[in-house]
Each structure stands twice: as C-alpha cells, then as structure tokens.
Design a protein around this nucleic acid. Structure first.
Lengths: 91, 91
DNA sequence: CTGCATCCTGTTTGATACTG
DNA sequence: CAGTATCAAACAGGATGCAG
C-alpha cells in the first residue's frame, strides 16, 4: 500500500495499463484530478519505478508516461480491484 | 481504494482472511498498530460491510472479528497484493 | 504543453493514558 | 478484554497562480 495507496494511484496505473499518455491527455481522461495532484502522483510512481517518464525535450514540451515492467506486474492486481469495484459500486 | 485504502486495512483484512480474531489478539498479531488505530480501522471495515463483528456481550467482554461475504470477495485481491509485496519488498 | 510554488484544509495515524 | 479520550503530528489532496 506504500506504493499504490491513496485516492489516485491505481486509477492512473489502470489508465496507463490500457494506453500510454501525455500529461494533459492523462489529466483530461481522469475525472477530477488537478495538474498538481497528477504531477505528485506521477512523480511518486516514477520514483517507485512503477511508471516510466519519457521526456522528449521538445518545444513545446512533450512527455509520455507508460507502465514500467515492474508496473506491469501490477496488472492482475489492477484487474482484481477493477472487478471488485464494479461488483460493489459506492452509493 | 475508498474501502481498502490507508496503511492498515489490507493488513487487517489479510489477517482475518487466515483466521478469526479477538480484538487484543489481532492487535498483538499486527506489528505496530495501536488499539486506537485498530479500533478505527475495524469500525470502518464493519461499516463498509467487509468485516463482521460478533459481540458476545459477556463479562469480561468478548468480540470476534471475521470477514463478511463481501470481504471474502477481496481474497484474490489480497493474494495479489501479498504476492507483489513479496516480489518487491520495500528497501 | 508540462509542470512547479505556495498556501490551505481535512483526514489519518500515532502517543499516552484511562475506563466499564 | 475491548475498547475510549485527548492531544499532536504527518500526510493527501485541492485552489490558485506562475514559468520555461
């Protein structure tokens, strides 16, 4: 839980599991997350080596986020969480 | 994550998955948790119907905590978390 | 576009002591 | 035995604005 705890991490990981994302693209696709929070989350996920950040150092800036190999080991777990969440939606 | 987030919930759930516990017994078996915190955790897990509290209303008091049927649906998830945790221990 | 800086608030967790 | 009371600390997340 030190790695995936909190309100957002599994959501971000699940998105990246389906597709790689740019920062803004990811922010738009996740409902309700602020750039600040997303930035924190991605920084921690990258530090824990669950997510890879590809920085293209272009102007305008372009970054692409994807699951690392360690992050991919979380996929069965993400699927279980998703399954449980769908079976027991919050009221 | 609203149901299982935080530092302790999955640990408590995993313990209860292996065996039913009394309050103090559970506190002793989980390293580092205080009675206060355990009490909060169990209250929330019971409110979310992941855990059942059996109160025998005896003197001295006796309570037994166990997984509810909804809690048991979390077992595959708990196993995945445990597996990942063992493959990637914190430094 | 991709973030960082600041400030702020509510929640979670912990220390310690105590009760029916 | 099974918790509660009180106080404090840490942390997560949000609002807003700014920079390269």
């Amino acid at each position: 839980m030190a790695l995936i705890g909190g309100k957002w991490k599994v959501i971000v990981l699940d998105h990246l599991h389906h597709k790689d994302y740019h920062f803004n693209e990811l922010q738009r696709s996740i409902n309700g997350i602020t750039p600040h929070t997303l930035s924190q989350i991605l920084k921690e996920l990258a530090k824990d080596d669950l997510v890879k950040r590809h920085d293209f150092k272009t102007i305008p800036p372009q970054t692409v986020y994807s699951l690392s190999s360690k992050g991919k080991e979380l996929i069965p777990l993400l699927n279980e969480i998703t399954k449980f969440g769908k079976n027991h939606p919050l009221q």
